[in-house]
Design a protein around this nucleic acid. Sequence first.
DNA 1: TTGAAAGCGATACCAT
DNA 2: ATGGTATCGCTTTCAA
Lengths: 346, 346
Amino acid sequence: MNIGEIARRAGVSRSTVSYALSGKRPVSDDTRQKIQRVIDELGYRPNASARALANGRTSTLGLVFPPAGTHYTGMQLDFIGSVVEAAAAYDYDVLLSPSGADSDRSFQRLLGERRVDGAILMEIRLQDDRIDHLVAENFPAVCIGRTAQPDGDWWVGLDHTALAAACVDHLADLGHRRIALVNRPERMLRAGYESAHRGLDGFTKAAAERGLTARTYNCGDDAPSGHVCVEQILRDDPATTALVTLNEAALGGIYRGLAAAGRHVPRDFSVTGVVAGRWAETVTPQLTAADVPAEQMGHLAVELLVERLDHPEAAPRHHLLTPPISLRASTGPAHTHPDAGPGSNA
Amino acid sequence: MNIGEIARRAGVSRSTVSYALSGKRPVSDDTRQKIQRVIDELGYRPNASARALANGRTSTLGLVFPPAGTHYTGMQLDFIGSVVEAAAAYDYDVLLSPSGADSDRSFQRLLGERRVDGAILMEIRLQDDRIDHLVAENFPAVCIGRTAQPDGDWWVGLDHTALAAACVDHLADLGHRRIALVNRPERMLRAGYESAHRGLDGFTKAAAERGLTARTYNCGDDAPSGHVCVEQILRDDPATTALVTLNEAALGGIYRGLAAAGRHVPRDFSVTGVVAGRWAETVTPQLTAADVPAEQMGHLAVELLVERLDHPEAAPRHHLLTPPISLRASTGPAHTHPDAGPGSNA
DNA sequence: TTGAAAGCGATACCAT
DNA sequence: ATGGTATCGCTTTCAA
């Protein structure tokens, strides 16, 4: 059933039905009602493909994120959920594209075949060929995260440098002198992931400024890797009394590794980091952390994208967020653990 | 740029370009190469809307799941990830629809406007108006979960009855005599969520068969509710020594509540349940649980849907899964806790 | 092996 | 206030 059928049954022309639906031209109350009655009766809905072809808009947003090589982190998943929800409020549907690279089939389909009106990108790298591509085509996109040169882009990002530094300061204030960073996997660092890079920067500089002894580690995005990483940290320097994690997926393993080594959190070891709030609250003890406001960021990204779609010539806008540290239960004053003596091995 | 432009530049007709692309009609090597050269040069990709309009297929699957009223559970998110990944392997994109009810705008768009070729539904209710609607329209869909009368449907589901029973048996085998069930929120039970209903059934019957004292609780889908729920359980019957949870999101709070009450897991309290495997491994101690194979289920659902799309007349198929209990670290032999004496209050 | 032209189902311009 | 019709970009039948 199509618009022609409706027109025929209502005894009007197709254009009149179209205008009655869109309201882009006045239609007499009489015919409007006649049309509406037929539509209700037949349960007619205009075909999205035909409409998209005719007016050049799909009413769909693309959400681009790397394929779940291993698994998604809670944070990534929170982004997805919030983007979908926000998009629905603007009557946009969301098309998911598991693409890490410019060359991915799904990414090409999204853009080249014009399946979406605009795109939101996650997991940004400092140099990101996907973004280069989008900019070159002047394709409306908004990034969750920012590249090394974000000035021409639309984005909503986190000040990872400041966040990691705030974690270090928090620990230093509590008297910790030997700390460690649990970063994302080395592969992500090499690929240029911005959070891993900027977080590392912030951690390193803040530790230097506060005169702390600091070591940095790369850790796989899963609990077992977190466990192994903690073992390594305590082996390298048993006097370590605190750590900062940028790696949410490893958190469970980090806690377990600490417990296995006989370090009680927060009595004789403090843990903090940059983690989505709701996941910080699932672990025991609850994590004191710079909460990533995933929900807010997803909403802002959609808001920016819709604005950009409505005003194609608008100047780039962005939001740089620096959420405060939420004090919970995983950090406390520094104490030296008995195992921390020289030559000992936890 | 469109197919006409390509045709002009290659000096052939539009139909020849189309056939060169689809391979549905032989094209001489010579012209094929000529066309391909032009296409590469201009970076041409056929417009998805036009193609969908012409041949009636969108190459898009819909994924329907309830809006994140509160937040998504890890399990739901795992489904989303695995469905997207599996769909990509078949060159389908996935359109997300946050719809809990037949009447949701997004759901209507998906079906009525024919934005997708088929749909995958999550969070199935025993009576589900979305499914009734789909069946009535003979719209190709596959459910993750099953209704009370699933025989005519395509689905991949879990035997929640058996899973809950297996948890009870496991606890009974360890000598536990007084146990509790932490179910999903009452709102979900009232709405008819199949996992909550069938799980409750399985738990209740198995407990009766093994002659256990069992209580059942509804619990909000978040950590704080889990904490409160445990307090309630221990208040109602301090002699309780184990619980089964169908509520993944409450798990963190359950652990915390137990710790706060001075019950050590698994020494003097055992916890088990039905939870997605990777989340069972993030908590400490790791949860002994019937692991929901979310990834496998997502893949199977896509596989079934693709099959159904390719063979519109095929008879309904389904997969009923009963994953075994993975023994981890959260259950142990029953001991009576000192606080469990009559009149005491942990 | 190839071309011409009729759809697919909407929108929107040009008439009346 | 309404109708007729060209148009969006592709697929596919019919002819040659």
